[in-house]
Design a protein around this nucleic acid. Sequence first.
DNA 1: CAACAGTTTAGAATTACTCTAATGTACTGC
DNA 2: GCAGTACATTAGAGTAATTCTAAACTGTTG
Lengths: 149, 149
Amino acid sequence: MSKASAKTSKSASNAAIVQAALEKLRAAGLRPTKQRIALGALLFDGRDRHVTAEALHDEVRGAGADVSLATVYNTLHQFTEAGLLREVVVNAGASHFDTNVGAHHHLYYADSGELHDVDATDVRIEGLPAVPRGAEIERVDVIVRLRRR
Amino acid sequence: MSKASAKTSKSASNAAIVQAALEKLRAAGLRPTKQRIALGALLFDGRDRHVTAEALHDEVRGAGADVSLATVYNTLHQFTEAGLLREVVVNAGASHFDTNVGAHHHLYYADSGELHDVDATDVRIEGLPAVPRGAEIERVDVIVRLRRR
DNA sequence: CAACAGTTTAGAATTACTCTAATGTACTGC
DNA sequence: GCAGTACATTAGAGTAATTCTAAACTGTTG
């Protein structure tokens, strides 16, 4: 990736990504502010990503946008509420946000903190107890914790 | 439970629990200090329990023992390393420690923070991808997230 | 384009822990 | 038993992640 074109000129594909982010925001009923567009452009570029608030903050500032950490937190939560992101809790330290909002599970390397998606369509879980009366399943998370040998 | 007998006299069953905790500590190669015995007596009373450090700290102090929060943290980690407890990460806020160290999964009520065990012996998970080269499974956690209706 | 609701922000506050370095205590060997 | 020492405990400071606050700013609506 070229870092030739800094904050002033933007590549055509970047413009397309910004446009997509903008539409995503409108569809979610979120005002398309400069900050939300900058974050959306990073998050919704088509790839499946896992970010922490700190990491995304660094990234968006590295990209030339001036977004405060508080806004990164606010935005991550708003995106999550809007169904644009999913919060993944794998370690007590920090929350991860996943741009893959489809049914899937996770592979987690505890030592490096690396997180990988596992499509849920071909995962079957059998023998779980009946859902307790008065409750309903919000979701089932499977986390395969891996150790490097 | 009678709170009649405070810190001085202890009921016979309590003495038995203390004895059991003491033996558990010795078996794990941990020096049976007053604090570890007090915490062990609360944790290893036979029930399956889920505690946070703060909650256990309140509980042990409520029981008349003077244990600092730092010691509660130290002890929870030492017990976990010794295989006497298991750390469960269900929410970004705080770590939970589970006295059930057998193979099992969890039912989690996000609103109340309630955590229940699901025995793993009759749970089958199929269709997970092959374990990546150079890695091995440390454990597989299934968390059924429930919402009250 | 004025007005207001919704947003952003810096910095303080809070929460959940961890660290430090001083004091206390269980286990050895005698 | 008791001294010596290695291990434990502790208060309080420190840190990391996150939330709060209240003031300044900006999309949107009329």
